[in-house]
Amino acid sequence: MKASAFAYARATSVANALEMLTTYGERAKVLSGGQSLLPAMNLRLVAPELIVDIGELTELRGVAVKGEVLTIGALTRHADLLKSREVAAHAPLLKDAVAHIAHPAIRNRGTIGGSLAHADPASELPACMLTLGATIIARGPGGERRIAANEFFVGIYETALTPQELLVAVELPVTPKNSTHFFHEFARRHGDYAIVGLAAQASIRDGRFADLRLGFFAVGDRPLLAESASKLVDVAITPAVLIEAASALDDELDPLEDQQATPAMRRHLAKVLLARCVSLLLARPDLGAGAPA
């Protein structure tokens, strides 16, 4: 199938892009890497009147560290994140996560801004934003808005962005030196969207979690920063504690049914991930064997 006809505009500046978005509103679509938008258009699932190509706005591209803040431009490609020394040093979780996104040719065009704006609940990067406590920076007709990641994702393919706004960057606090992370997802094939995934960041002191942030994805209509993580902080982890945390996690989940898995399976796999994550981070093989029921 071929895409429906549309008009095309190559934005010359952020201001120029915003002007067009203001005029066209929902009839326009921003084009970044095109790796989610174009498949949908080729299936005629979406048929925008105007495509606003922001691909040449170089000011939206790149990774920078200033003080304790890592800023990633919206147009930074998955492949750039994978290669970035700043990301490897200051947000290693992100690097691990990106390796799970699609395939090399797709990572060469897909962008972080596109991925976050697209807000697929099975995507890796939105969950990482929650885990890492990111701030998403949007620019609209009324100026710049800073949106906390946990307020940004509001549903399947739905974000806090208005059709007139452009996601321009994300800011992440630099990960503390003694912090550690875990990233894993269950996908049927290499590069597939996850059935369930977990992006976790933790600091550990004397065999206990001093801090633990668990960002689950593909467990509901949006990524989830699990509150049940608190049950594991500042306590000695025993199988019983883990089971309690898992059951608290269960209460937080609201998984969807799709081709790959029923909600029950997603709940189960989320708990398996929780156990494996805790076991690995604490180097406690005894905790990971077998999922808490």
Binding site: G34, L38, I51, A105, I106, N108, R109
Partner: peptide
């Protein structure tokens, strides 16, 4: 860079 040519517009 390798890319999917079905997911890129000629105008790009």
């Amino acid at each position: 860079d390798i890319v999917r040519s079905c997911l890129m517009l000629a105008v790009q």
